[in-house]
Simulated assay, not measured.
Amino acid sequence: MLRDWSDVYLIGIAEIDQQHQGFFAAAHRLYEEILDREGKNAVVEAMAFMRDYAEQHFQTEEAFMREHDYPGLKEHMQLHVAFFRRLDGLEDDLMIFGPSQDLADRALDITQDWLIDHIADEDMLYSLHVKAREPRGNAA
């Protein structure tokens, strides 16, 4: 199910929260481009945008975690690598089979649903770590 952004996904770190909103929008765009099926090029462009956005976002997250000595950095980075592996599989299937409802559903699972779970579980952990270390609890 395509879900809209909600403030319940905020982790309280302004730059990361803004990127999460952009990542969410990119997931919507990818899903809609696949469903539109007007041509593989639009889907390929949306997929490339998603990959670029994820790379930039993950670099920001990882730098933030390094800056704040987050003890779970290595494990968190492994989750990012696993995301790209799933995205690779989606791209391979796009090239082999073309756009389809099944591909759109998988794209939604790989992008939006993964992101929501990742924010709620993993990103919230490093947010809490940073807030606990801040003198006034302000990590933004």
Rank of each mutant, 00 (worst) to 15 (best):
A63T: 15
F64N: 09
L94A: 13
V130Y: 13
K131R: 15
A25L: 06
I96W: 07
G72F: 06
F49R: 05
E55K: 09
M124L: 13
M124W: 08
D52R: 15
K40R: 14
Y31F: 12
L87H: 04
E134Q: 14
L103G: 06
L87V: 12
D4Y: 03
E61C: 07
F84Q: 04
D105A: 12
D123Q: 05
W114H: 05
D52L: 15
E61H: 10
L115Y: 06
D105S: 09
R136V: 10
L90G: 03
M95C: 03
E75W: 07
G98K: 02
G89K: 03
L35W: 01
D109S: 09
M124Q: 11
I34L: 13
H28V: 02
Q59E: 15
E61R: 04
F97D: 12
S127L: 02
Q18P: 04
D123M: 04
Q78I: 05
R29E: 13
V43N: 12
H20L: 01
N41I: 01
Q19M: 13
Q21H: 03
V130L: 04
Q101A: 12
E32D: 08
H68G: 08
E91Q: 14
K40S: 14
H118M: 00
Q56L: 13
L2Q: 01
D88A: 11
F23V: 01
M47P: 08
K40M: 15
Q59P: 02
D7M: 06
A14P: 12
L10S: 03
R136K: 10
L103A: 09
F58L: 05
L10G: 02
M1L: 06
F97R: 12
Q21W: 07
G22H: 11
A27R: 08
D92G: 05
W5L: 01
G98Q: 05
Q101P: 03
L103P: 00
L73I: 11
H118F: 08
V8G: 01
Q101V: 14
E15A: 14
E15N: 06
L35R: 15
H68L: 03
D36P: 00
L73E: 09
H118W: 03
E134D: 12
L79V: 05
I16Y: 01
R29M: 08
L115D: 06
G137L: 06
L90H: 05
T60F: 13
Y31H: 14
H57W: 11
E38R: 15
D93W: 04
W114G: 01
E15L: 07
I16A: 08
Q59W: 13
E61F: 11
H129I: 00
M47A: 14
R133N: 13
L35E: 14
R29I: 02
L94Q: 09
A132P: 07
D36G: 03
E45C: 05
G12L: 00
D117V: 06
D17Q: 03
W5D: 00
F24M: 05
